[in-house]
Design a binder for these strands. Sequence first.
DNA 1: TAGTGGTCTAGACCACTAC
DNA 2: TAGTGGTCTAGACCACTAA
Lengths: 253, 253
Amino acid sequence: MGTTQLEPVPEPKYWQLKTVLSEALDSEFEVGEILPNERDLAARFGVARATLRQALEQLELEGRLQRRRGVGTTVAPPRVGVSLGTGPHIWPGGPDDVWQPVDCTTAVPSAAVAEALGTGRDESVHIVRRSRVSHGRPVAAELLHVPHSSVPGLSAIDASSGPARARAVLRDLRRLELERQENAVELGSAGTADAKELDRLPGAPVLVVTTRFVAAGGTAALSVATYRADTCRLTFGDSGGVEIHDGVQRKAS
Amino acid sequence: MGTTQLEPVPEPKYWQLKTVLSEALDSEFEVGEILPNERDLAARFGVARATLRQALEQLELEGRLQRRRGVGTTVAPPRVGVSLGTGPHIWPGGPDDVWQPVDCTTAVPSAAVAEALGTGRDESVHIVRRSRVSHGRPVAAELLHVPHSSVPGLSAIDASSGPARARAVLRDLRRLELERQENAVELGSAGTADAKELDRLPGAPVLVVTTRFVAAGGTAALSVATYRADTCRLTFGDSGGVEIHDGVQRKAS
DNA sequence: TAGTGGTCTAGACCACTAC
DNA sequence: TAGTGGTCTAGACCACTAA
């Protein structure tokens, strides 16, 4: 990555910069390697730091870079494939479940969640917080909303707290026979709580996966899971192996 | 949305701003309504325009706003659910296909695509360009890579061009018996070509859906589709109806 | 032509990390 | 304490849209 000057073409500088950096990343850097700091890079390309940052932001969005305050900018490893098992329907807490229960509270959900669950306006539900780890890194945080009607065996005044209570809800949920699950994926940004759990700054881009568990004709539970968009590739249908994205090949570490 | 002054708390201004604007959007604006321009808004909240823009960017990322150069910033309608039919495996060009063939070329694919297809390093493939429209708006652009071996009936020197040739490739592809399809979703940014087709600026966030069509033990075709992340919610498993996202309820138009 | 969002600059200070 | 990325400012000019 020499002291390249940008061509004076009618294309945004940050876009050219992103392209140049992207190519340099492919050919001159290894995964995990630290890039020069932003002030140096900006000077090297003859642009303002803000412009350089615009290019870096894009590359981070595409999962090519990882930036950490106080540390520096490093070359990110390829995204990890995370399976959203759709084949045989999986109940939360079942044998193949990859989620770890964190805790469980009871609260009135947002109007949107309540509508999907078919619960009343001021009806509270169990909210099980779970976290998903892959390759030793946190990749997703989930809120599983369970109406009381789905787990009638659970005492409403069950005083157990934390993971114990979460497991109790999941166990009771498994009694129901799951008909199917409906999934949706969309782009969102991490709230303060999710950001902390995912080890990112608030506002970081996330893939929001909403899963509706349908049993006995109704919605037995609703999961809203946020996956780190920078490090995750969500796979479904089968396996989790294909390694494709806009034609870029990266060096192995 | 009054001339609110921001509280002097140790939280980024753009984050507070985003929250304030988000609430105002819920309570004081209708879908399609035009917001005050950026200079006015910035002055109203007592911040620099760049800071205001950081908040608007977040809201646009979440699909709450739509910004158009020369026009203004408008309140976006709720995201449209777009189905990625996974149930009964669907061949491209089949009866329920929602894609429109645009044209077809022949070229050597990127290394990553070639690897997934199992084609040789310099082996060319058919590349069918298709576009997907929903509610009258373009929502996705796709490149379907088809090795010659998957469509042996097609003359290599077939001079037909454009949609006609695209349809010929798809027709020939349908002879094969599809075993299954593997999907992956990840975050990306639109290249120049995709951006134009999706009516967005280059670099706009997109959801990249990679689909591997498996037939007779091998990869018969590989689709790389880019969906507008601001306007789309990808659904699979069943139906396309659930309307959930981080608890925000929007006014209907 | 007037008004909009998009790009860019050259600074400043802050929050965090690691030494 | 030194160095990093994160936030913020107050300007400037450009590209585009619509009247």
